[in-house]
Computed example of a mutant assay.
Amino acid sequence: MTMPLLKPFLAVVMTFLVASSVAAQDRPRVVAVNYPLQYFAERLVGDAAEVIFPVPADVDPSFWRPSIADISTIQSADLILLNGAGFATWVDRVSLPRAKVANTTTAIEDQFIRTESITHSHGDGDEHSHEGLASYTWLDPMLAIAQAEAVAAAITARGIAPDDAVATRLDALRADLAELDRQATGAFDGMQDIAMIATHPRYQYLAQRYGLSISSLEWEAGAMPTDAEQADLVALATQTGAQVLIWEAAPPAEAFAVAAELGLANIVFPTLAQGVDDQTYMQAIANALTAISEAKP
């Protein structure tokens, strides 16, 4: 290409790049306090907005403490999606613009589950309590539908994406969640009389939806249980006659062996406040349900 022709070509390229950069910056931004809300929002907005989940991958979103920079990013967003039900303790300590905030569980508050007072700490974090409300509402696909509907309403109310496109995507998301509920109903069929133990008290809405009996321990997700924790498992399994142990995240293989020696079927059922590598919300729960079906006592 000769020099006289090269200059106009470069000018066109630079104009395109600048326009693309400006367009990207001009896209509305949506902030979600957990992965399920991020997933719902991304499906509903398509390419019309950028959806941000600011919590680092190795941090529990329930107890994350945003930095000043994080708070600035959140406050400047066009829409801030809260889970409600006491999820994300930082929300009560940060000033958020009311006009930008949408609580996705407002319509289902009558279905909230009250929890017992359990105070403990995670790793090197401060002590905290699970007293109050169970907050992992999205583990019940029917409640997840209500949250997805709230996300869609918040998006359209602020003009973040076209109403008709959001409505079409919401119909598809509803159908997927209803199918997930159908799969769960089949997977848990006949398990209502089988006692189960979970490594963390986060499955209340799952248990309520499908009539399950789940007792809970207080183990660190994905970690090898200590000798004391293993003793707690033995005691609880003896007390309840449990046949299934539900892990919030996959632990070391030797941890599975400990449970198997007690006659417990090991099931990994991610609670999804954080995403699971290479799996969407739908895929992660569907895979867990398949594992449940295959491991039925």
Rank of each mutant, 00 (worst) to 15 (best):
P8I: 12
F16I: 15
V22C: 14
A48G: 02
E50S: 10
A57N: 02
F63L: 13
R65I: 00
T73R: 11
A77S: 11
L81H: 09
G86I: 05
T89A: 15
T89S: 12
W90Y: 12
V91T: 14
S95L: 12
V101E: 15
E109Q: 15
T115H: 08
T115K: 05
T119H: 00
G123S: 03
D124Q: 11
D126H: 05
E127L: 15
E127G: 09
H128I: 11
S129A: 09
E131M: 08
A134I: 03
W138S: 13
W138C: 08
D140S: 14
P141R: 09
A150I: 00
A154P: 02
A157H: 06
I160F: 03
P162K: 02
P162D: 01
D164H: 01
V166Q: 07
R169I: 01
D181H: 08
D189K: 07
Q204E: 10
Y205N: 06
Q208L: 05
S216R: 03
E220F: 09
P225K: 06
A228E: 14
A235N: 12
A237M: 14
T240S: 12
V244W: 01
E248N: 10
A253H: 04
A253D: 07
F256I: 00
A257L: 01
L262C: 03
F269T: 07
L272A: 13
A273G: 13
Q283A: 05
A286F: 00
A286Y: 06
T290C: 06
